[in-house]
Design a protein around this nucleic acid. Sequence first.
DNA 1: ACGAGAACGCTAGCACCGCTAGACAAGAGA
DNA 2: TCTCTTGTCTAGCGGTGCTAGCGTTCTCGT
Lengths: 193, 193
Amino acid sequence: MSVQQRRERERAERHRLIVDAARELAESEGWGAVTTRRLSERVACSQPVLYSHFTGKEAIVTAVAADGIGELTVALRTARTGAACPAEALTALAVTYLAFARAHPALYEAMFVRRTSLEFATENSPEVLKAAFAEFLHTVGPLTGGRDPATLAELVWSALHGLATLDGTDRLRPDLAEDRLELLVDAVVSGGV
Amino acid sequence: MSVQQRRERERAERHRLIVDAARELAESEGWGAVTTRRLSERVACSQPVLYSHFTGKEAIVTAVAADGIGELTVALRTARTGAACPAEALTALAVTYLAFARAHPALYEAMFVRRTSLEFATENSPEVLKAAFAEFLHTVGPLTGGRDPATLAELVWSALHGLATLDGTDRLRPDLAEDRLELLVDAVVSGGV
DNA sequence: ACGAGAACGCTAGCACCGCTAGACAAGAGA
DNA sequence: TCTCTTGTCTAGCGGTGCTAGCGTTCTCGT
């Protein structure tokens, strides 16, 4: 069994290598630069090998997206749990979310802009997605004031997503970034009183 | 001069034809199906002709986006001015915006998701962009309650954009769509009191 | 009326894309 | 040692955005 185990481990390593290469290439040159030829070159194998790991290019993007969502979840949890009160927790979550999107634009694009095969917002959603959304639920929970938590969480997420994407494509005034964030937090908090 | 005028008119007609063909193709089969070969086929000319009208494919997408933003502006103005009070105007604007995005997903993508050469949120922005943003400004104006109108307008737009895109890519619960909208309007209105 | 020249659109082709068929080599088990 | 499985490679398909260079057509001065 030692041989087979080694094979599996090497396969897993290469799997990891492909996903990381795709992510790095996307982060440095955009998803347009992520081609199967360049990927296979970076992983030091031929193109068909990629297709023995993934059904196609979209599946690779999906793998990158899942990784990113896991990392975002960790960042959001750290920010949220370090706050002194619910309103501060919401601010910390929002700041962290927007900072993540700004720091990793291509990763963010894979996570929430490009179409992937990740199933969102259903019972069958992958755990990593449920965990990410749970961060929003936990954050808005104390601030609902009679409003439905799931709806409020989706609204907050949507607002942050809109801010992140419009700002990331230079469609908003950069000088108002902080004010927009403050206004958002205030609107959510005051609406729950 | 009649000849030259006829030439210019025919050129303008073909320009219009290209933009319309791109839009129709995108709406029916997505932007992935919009290729220069298929476009030139629809317009009954060769590929190089496209490049005598536009610098490249991105310029065609930009032209489609500008058209769409103009149409959205008209729809928003109609909705806003037909409302009885500021809060109702905001609701009407939001409903109309989301309905537009849902009815024309590819057009919306060109307008606010894909990178185009349209310059947003600056003094040099095209008039069509200023007019669109003015609809948001006019709508939130009576609801600011001391808040900065431009910041609030950008926030409302961002929230609607987030809702439109996340909903349009099946990342939100469809059954909560109406509740999200109601919550958004309430948060904006109550935050201004 | 006619030839020169410009304006314009065409064919053909470049380098690249995602993806796959089929040849080939290396290793496991009898 | 021979066979067979497993895995990878080369080569290629039909497509992409875009362009060089040729040919036609049409305008205008003589």
